[in-house]
Design a protein around this nucleic acid. Structure first.
Lengths: 66, 66
DNA sequence: CTTAAATGTAAAGTTTGTTTTACATTTGAA
DNA sequence: TTCAAATGTAAAACAAACTTTACATTTAAG
């Protein structure tokens, strides 16, 4: 599971804390997600995708591991 | 969180057990998902969406609760 | 250079996803 | 109607998501 959250964030010049509060999770959750430390729930994934106005697949990609 | 798994399954005339083994989870997991008893991980959601050849958003929908 | 904001990281704890086992009920085909 | 397959459900156990607190490091602006 890979994701491009930090890229999307960079484009919009948004902070981890900003995104976190926008989607209702802690900043560490966003930080850990960007570090690919774990796999989020679909709900969180969809909230993030919605926030960036992109489909889930544009931000999250299945890897070999999955 | 709503989903249309059982509809997609009906269309393809596929059993819960079939889908379960196709995406690598237990049959109870699929059953519980259809009953909306919990929210899956993005990985599982994407595997299910891929299996049905549809985007995640076509199968999973955020509700008020989320 | 200095300072504040942003980020990385880590441990402990809570909650929630997922598996396993097991059994009861429904459905469909013969 | 009978039997097998499919589905519903439930409890215990385990794994993984997510929070909280707390601190160290990096980055950017003044």
């Amino acid at each position: 599971m890979k994701n491009t959250i930090h890229v999307e964030r960079a484009i919009r010049r948004i902070t981890q804390a900003d995104l976190a509060s926008a989607v209702g999770v802690s900043r560490q959750t966003i930080n850990a997600l960007e570090a690919a430390k774990y796999v989020p729930s679909v709900v969180l994934a969809m909230k993030i995708a919605n926030y960036f106005e992109k489909p889930v697949e544009a931000i999250f990609e299945l890897g070999e591991e999955d």
